[in-house]
C-alpha cells in the first residue's frame, strides 16, 4: 500500500530508498504511539512490538479540494476515490472517518455534491467533518453547514463520544487574522465541553488549521490555540489532528500529540522551502506517493493511540 518499502535488507521494515523518499516528502515517516502518556516513535514499516488489538480504529482524510483542476493534480476527484478505495480495502475497517476540511476548493454546490457522492462509496458511512477556509470563506459557511454541519454549534464545532474516546471537532478557519483563530465563543464552549470528562478520557481534537505553530509565517498556526491547549492540559491522552498544510508533520508536547495529515489532492512545500505555500507540482508518477490518509488506533486500558500515515502510492 505504501511505496516506502522496496528493499528490506536489514529486516527492519524499511529500506534506504524508501526512507529517503519518505523523509523527503512526508517530513517524518514516523509512526508514533502514546502509552500511559509516554510517547514513543518508530519509522514507517517497523512492526510494533506487543501491541494489543485496537479497540477502535478511525481514519483521517483531509484537503480533498474538489474543484481544483490545475497541473498539481487535474483529477482530485480521482485521487479522493483512490483514498476511499484504499480505506475500503483496509484489513480492519475503521469505526469512523474524519475529514479535516477543505472538502472543496471553491465552496461551489457542485463541488460539495461531488465530494458527498464520492464518499457514498465508503464502506464506513459514519463520517465527521470540520470545514477549511476554502469551504466557508465565500458565504460564511452557509452551504457547508447546511450539508455537513447539522446539529453543530456556532460555525460548525461539536463533540461526540465513540467507545472510550471523546472527539472534539473545532473550527479555526472562519476568522483568519493572518492565521487560524478559534474565538472566544468556541473557547468557552470547549472549556465547558471538557468539564464533564474524567481526566483519563482519551481525547481526539480535530481541526483544519494546525493548533500548533507549524510555520506562522505562512499562517500555519492558530493565534489562540494556547488557550485551548491550557484546557486540554489536565488530560492524560490528547491527540490533535489537522490538515491544511498537505504534509505529514508531528510534534509531542507533554501529554499532547499533534499530527498533520497529507491531502488527498495535492502536496504543498515544506515550511520555508518555497517562496510561498500553495499547490506543488511533482512529477506525475510521484503524485500518489505524496497524497494519503491517516489511520489512528486506540487501545483501551493503555490510553494508547497509534497513528499511521499511508500514502496512495502503489
Amino acid at each position: 500500500m505504501s511505496k516506502f518499502i522496496i528493499h528490506d535488507h536489514s529486516n527492519d521494515g524499511i529500506d534506504r530508498r524508501g526512507f529517503l523518499n519518505c523523509m523527503a516528502w512526508a517530513g517524518t515517516g514516523v509512526l508514533w504511539t502514546i502509552s500511559g502518556g509516554v510517547p514513543s516513535s518508530r519509522l514507517f514499516g517497523q512492526k510494533p512490538s506487543g501491541t494489543s488489538k485496537a479497540d477502535m480504529t478511525f481514519v483521517q482524510i483531509s484537503d480533498s479540494h474538489i474543484g481544483f483542476n490545475k497541473p498539481a493534480n487535474p483529477d482530485v476527484t480521482g485521487t479522493l476515490q483512490v483514498a476511499i478505495d484504499r480505506i475500503n480495502a483496509l484489513d480492519a475497517q475503521p469505526d469512523l472517518i474524519l475529514h479535516t476540511g477543505d472538502l472543496t476548493h471553491s465552496a461551489k454546490s457542485a463541488e460539495f455534491d461531488t465530494l458527498a457522492q464520492s464518499l457514498l462509496s465508503s464502506k464506513q458511512k459514519q463520517i465527521f467533518y470540520v470545514p477549511g477556509e476554502h469551504d466557508i470563506s465565500v458565504d460564511d459557511g452557509k452551504a457547508y453547514l447546511e450539508r455537513f454541519g447539522k446539529g453543530t454549534q456556532g460555525k460548525g464545532w461539536y463533540s461526540f463520544d465513540q467507545k472510550s474516546v471523546h472527539f472534539i471537532g473545532l473550527v479555526n478557519s472562519a476568522v483568519l487574522e493572518g492565521m487560524g483563530k478559534l474565538g472566544d465563543d468556541q473557547l468557552t464552549w470547549l472549556r465547558n465541553d471538557l468539564k464533564k470528562l474524567s481526566k483519563s478520557t482519551p481525547i481526539v481534537v480535530f481541526a483544519h488549521i494546525p493548533l500548533w505553530a507549524v510555520y506562522p509565517e505562512w499562517g500555519w498556526a492558530t493565534s489562540d490555540s494556547v488557550q485551548a491547549l491550557t484546557y486540554l492540559k489536565p488530560f492524560g491522552s490528547v491527540t490533535v489532528l489537522n490538515g491544511h498544510i498537505h504534509q505529514v508533520m508531528q510534534k509531542v508536547e507533554g501529554n499532547v500529540a499533534f499530527h498533520s495529515a497529507m491531502s488527498t489532492a495535492f502536496p504543498q512545500p515544506a515550511p520555508g522551502k518555497a517562496p510561498s505555500p500553495g499547490p506543488m507540482k511533482v512529477p506525475t508518477e510521484q503524485l500518489k506517493s505524496v497524497l494519503g490518509f491517516t489511520s489512528v488506533h486506540s487501545i483501551s486500558g493503555k490510553h494508547s493511540l497509534a497513528v499511521v500515515d499511508t500514502s496512495l502510492g502503489a
Binding site: 478557519s173 476568522v175 483568519l176 487574522e177
Partner: peptide, 10 residues
C-alpha cells in the same frame, strides 16, 4: 478581508 481573503493573502 480577514474572513474571505485572509486564508490565502497577507
Amino acid at each position: 478581508f480577514e474572513k474571505r481573503c485572509g486564508g490565502c493573502h497577507g
